[in-house]
Nucleic acid binder design. Sequence first.
DNA 1: CCGATAGTTGAGAAAATCTCATGCATAAAG
DNA 2: CTTTATGCATGAGATTTTCTCAACTATCGG
Lengths: 312, 312
Amino acid sequence: MHKAMPPLSALRAFEAAARHLSFTLAARELHVTPGALSHQIRGLEELLDVKLFERRVRAIALTTAGKQLYPGLQSGFGQIREAVASLNAVGNSKVLVLSTSPGLTSKWLVPRLYRFSNEFPDVDVRISASVNRANFTTDGIDMAIRYMTLEPAPDRALESEKIVEISLIAVCSPRLLKKHGPVKSAQDLARLPLIHDESLNPHMAAFGWREWFEAAGVGSVDLRRGLRFNSADHALDAAGEGAGILLAFDLLAYDDLRTGRLVVPFRLALPSGRAFHLVWPKGRKANQVAENFRRWIKEEIAALDWRRIKGR
Amino acid sequence: MHKAMPPLSALRAFEAAARHLSFTLAARELHVTPGALSHQIRGLEELLDVKLFERRVRAIALTTAGKQLYPGLQSGFGQIREAVASLNAVGNSKVLVLSTSPGLTSKWLVPRLYRFSNEFPDVDVRISASVNRANFTTDGIDMAIRYMTLEPAPDRALESEKIVEISLIAVCSPRLLKKHGPVKSAQDLARLPLIHDESLNPHMAAFGWREWFEAAGVGSVDLRRGLRFNSADHALDAAGEGAGILLAFDLLAYDDLRTGRLVVPFRLALPSGRAFHLVWPKGRKANQVAENFRRWIKEEIAALDWRRIKGR
DNA sequence: CCGATAGTTGAGAAAATCTCATGCATAAAG
DNA sequence: CTTTATGCATGAGATTTTCTCAACTATCGG
């Protein structure tokens, strides 16, 4: 007699672990602890009487049996997820769930979404603002805006399209300049209070004030001083209150620069080598709502007038 | 935000109920009570915020949403089951699981299986003898031998092949005839003790002694008398012990007739209008073991020599 | 050498699932 | 027409499954 079907939760645990080749990442995806996932996998192996993973230190690899089991499960669970997602999509009329960073959300996207809603009043756009990278498999996300290299390596599961390259510019409140006198050189900036936005470059060899001053030809600037924030919108708000000079993403400062709440004390835009990309899953059924959003956001980016801000 | 993925067990409950269009049958397949299944479905509907079934009295029908959700789940769960089954098949080397009735098993199949094992020594044939119709989806069955009409309606999920038509014949021990004198007519039989095998025709408008006597031109036979059994092998054993004349499936009586343990007192073979069919799931990967079994059982059927038994 | 990381494991807690019993509304049988 | 049978619904409590937590092991990286 064939063995009984194993528990579906164990099969799902296996599928996620096989896809990530990591118990830790799979556990995170399934919102359980690695201990729970480890138990599930071991239980599945006992039930099927076969090893599914080779355990190395701090890594796992699929065994032959695991490689044989995985594709059918991946496809099977994928179909189940698609079935549920497409029901939800229909059930919710037109909903677009977009994942992006809090800074981009509050400083650039939200002030513009009313134009998208005016053009598409029946579409419900829902922003999932998070510092963590959204997971398309489990988080119910339709699209994401991600800050990545100019030409990111192709992802087998995702399509992406660059929408705007990012440069770093120094911005401050005009009141700060009034108080401290005009800035004639980058060296002048080095003497003013600095604001550091540490959210710009999490977990990566990062651009910051050091690189900006070097590009401006100013050496030996003491960068230990100054306010530090770990969210871009708070940093920009502090700069707008006159707390100091902030090195910011040009896109995120755009609206404040347009309104005059912020100004560019020294015109040097340092290309970050990265851009915001719109990202969505491959194979996701063609979706008019998502198409409309893509077109709309590209139009919004194209409509930005940088000349009055950066002289270009 | 999209809703969270519902519990897999609830989705499986829905898929089974949608496939059967019955909570009761789905519950039986999943080895739970109908109450459990009802709870699962209702919970799923609340979570998805959509009705999946129209409840009628003693029947259910899929709603539009249910029809939309079902195909992806059916395919998804089907792939998961296939993935597990094919892993088990590999893991178990060559195993063939066959479901059939206890009578056919003990009176005809088991006495012959040694020839199959001799020809295919590495194949492990496992008989699941049950009076209930096996379920290919959940019972781990590779093939079944079922007693069905000569030309059964096509089943969308199953392939079938008729292997032997069945006739009803009267059989008894030669010792019975020695005790009661020779039988010259069917009328003579009507006076002898009868044995009824009530397993021949469960839940169906059935052939039995009444039809047999009518075909023999004998009316008004008192059929209330005689021993009654609800399993064919027990009935055949009782006949072999001289307990009476049994109306039996010719195939099931074959071996006892060949050995002389049973004889045919009056040669009238009444076609039952039904046959044993070999049945297996559509889409199941081509399986050499199953192919071998099909060929083998057809050869065994073809090799039966009915002339010495029925004069044909 | 020390801290970080990934997987393991057992015990107990929490959550999910199930059984059971009762009820309702027909459909079928007598 | 009445009675019985059947399928689904439901709440409460029991049972099972899944999970968390804490401690452990064995590397890897700084």
